[in-house]
Design a protein around this nucleic acid. Structure first.
Lengths: 223, 223
DNA sequence: ACAAAAGTGTTGTTACTACACCCATGG
DNA sequence: CCATGGGTGTAGTAACAACACTTTTGT
């Protein structure tokens, strides 16, 4: 309904977040073509003519980084007319979460020009990708508090220490271990597997798994 | 990066919600052109070549319904390739909130083919607008519980009874008046103006206004 | 005087916060 | 035997849920 013909490209970008060694990281790829050649950017690209944005995000992620079967949700649509100097392009940003191990193995080792960067020390990014990362981090922080989304950041089984470290890293503050452990088991977020972790130089940790890895809303609401 | 050239239109749609007479309603406009001529739909249209989606949503809302200066935020981007039978069109849906009075006066009286419909009894809608309305209602319900977003659904001043009715209508359940009143004043969500409402056939209500109408996050988090 | 909405307090229960020490293992 | 991370309980406090009657006005 707005006058003449539109000429707008539609793209997707994916902010893949992972917690590695107590740092919240994002997966970046090196841009090959101008005007941002050489810079780091989120993996992404134009959507196909018969593809939803989520399908395009999944496809781009696999093509550019090898990652598949990851948690992925739509984040926000960025539409500043100046966001791409090469011409008008609206981008539907997505948030993806992976266990740090997967990010390392599948992406950064086998693919050239792919790296995991701490969000606290990002290099200059192409386009408006710095805003996208900021939005992704906010979304993760808020969902961590009322969903079981942390299951996407951890391997199948894990110790409660690892779980707590994920929470502390994402939220950016220390948590009390007694209270933390009480909560996550009382809320039935995680359940013990009965196994112990062998091999550490310390007391072995009991292993846990998430009650479910499907998305779940946890906390009761009020008003 | 996906082969040949894209040909995708980019549109916005706006779900304007209001609470009227204890019912949650959405503003719809009658579609003029095929393939959905005669059906009801959300106000919306193609975005301009140099316009953000939010600017386009604001503009479309004013053009189609006369509403201006309303609370408006991006909701979700709908990209099913089959959502528009007339050809590929990605739509960035927005959520808008207005006091019921404004919806009635500015929109439905002065503009032909505009109506306020209870979301519980919608007529058949064009495109995927039924999903858009459902998404909008969910977003409103969840934000009502931890923000001051209700300020956008009420006039400048109001009685606590009206405020409670807005909450009950949106959330779809009854609330206890003693607890409700305690909360909203203790949390400094609303403050008494000192005025009374004159003219009802009953005991006059003390009037309140929101502590601020700017977006605010209310509840403290935990973990 | 009656109808209709406004307004108000207390109590039991639950959830949260704060806090310090012992345990099991590998080296 | 020591270094390292794993693991545990309690008590004070704050927030929440449940509950019924009186007040003020217009007609």
């Amino acid at each position: 309904m707005t006058g003449p013909h539109q000429s707008i490209r539609v793209a997707v970008d994916v902010a893949v977040l992972a917690v590695e060694a107590g740092r919240l990281c994002v997966l970046l790829v090196k841009v090959r073509r101008p005007p941002f050649a050489g810079r780091w950017a989120l993996p992404g690209g134009l959507i196909g003519q018969d593809e939803t944005t989520t399908a395009a995000a999944t496809r781009e992620l696999r093509e550019k980084t090898g990652l598949a079967d990851v948690w992925l949700e739509q984040l926000y649509t960025f539409s500043d007319p100046a966001r791409d100097p090469a011409g008008r392009c609206v981008s539907v940003a997505h948030l993806a979460l992976v266990p740090a191990r997967d990010a390392r193995l599948d992406a950064t080792t086998k693919y050239a020009g792919v790296g995991l960067f701490p969000v606290a020390e990002l290099p200059p990014l192409a386009f408006d990708h710095q805003s996208v990362v900021a939005t992704a981090v906010e979304r993760l922080q808020s969902k961590l508090e009322y969903t079981n989304i942390a299951s996407s950041l951890l391997p199948e089984t894990f110790g409660l220490g690892e779980l707590q470290q994920v929470y502390e890293t994402v939220l950016g503050r220390k948590l009390d271990p007694r209270n933390f452990r009480k909560r996550v088991v009382d809320l039935d977020l995680v359940r013990p597997t009965g196994e112990l972790r062998r091999g550490g130089a310390h007391r072995p940790a009991r292993l846990y798994r998430f009650a479910t890895r499907k998305p779940v809303i946890l906390r009761k609401l009020n008003v």
